[in-house]
């Protein structure tokens, strides 16, 4: 009986070690705490203002890009005058293909919207934010998973990847 109990304890311990290994080794290796630079565009439509965000334990490259994209879409706090994506814009996903970040947006952005003025400034801030990340040189925008020439009823061209030189 004592032997049986001892065996069960050992078995449980082995199981525990196995699952522990699965859980911890399966995680992306956290690197040192990272900061990302996020930009917003002032209401002159021209001037970009950077601010810096510290991520907790920095994760894999795509997650950091996703984080940065979400921040750029949210923009700075509401007391700052900035050109903003429509309230209710969602970042569905961010993928990285070589040096191009593929940003899938949706929510309020997919509804036909306003004039041309804000369009380019919104994407300017997003593109500058993502291309501030190491290794990312351009940004392909998608809308609800689809590559589009412009936003619905829009003006600014989105079908090719955008870089800082696009603005």
């Amino acid at each position: 009986m004592r032997l049986l109990r001892a065996l069960v304890v050992v078995a449980l311990f082995v199981v525990a070690v196995y699952y522990g290994y699965r859980v911890f080794a399966g995680r992306p290796r956290p690197v040192a705490a990272a900061t990302v630079t996020v930009y917003y565009c002032k209401t002159d439509g021209e001037t970009l203002v950077p601010w810096k965000l510290t991520l907790g334990p920095a994760r894999d490259r795509k997650s950091v890009a996703f984080y940065a994209a979400t921040q750029a879409v949210a923009g700075p706090s509401s007391d700052i005058d900035a050109i903003r994506f429509p309230s209710g814009t969602i970042v569905h996903a961010v993928d990285v293909d070589g040096s191009t970040a593929i940003v899938d947006l949706g929510g309020a952005l997919a509804k036909p919207t306003a004039g041309s003025f804000a369009e380019s400034a919104e994407f300017k801030a997003l593109v500058w934010t993502l291309t501030a990340l190491p290794g990312i040189g351009s940004v392909q925008v998608k809308l609800d998973g689809i590559r589009v020439p412009t936003l619905p009823g829009g003006h600014f061209e989105l079908d090719e990847p955008l870089s800082r030189a696009s603005f």
Partner: peptide
């Protein structure tokens, strides 16, 4: 709004 992509490690509410 909530942005979450199962491929990412962040869930971000704006």
């Amino acid at each position: 709004t909530l942005s979450y992509d199962p491929a990412q490690r962040y869930a971000i509410v704006t």
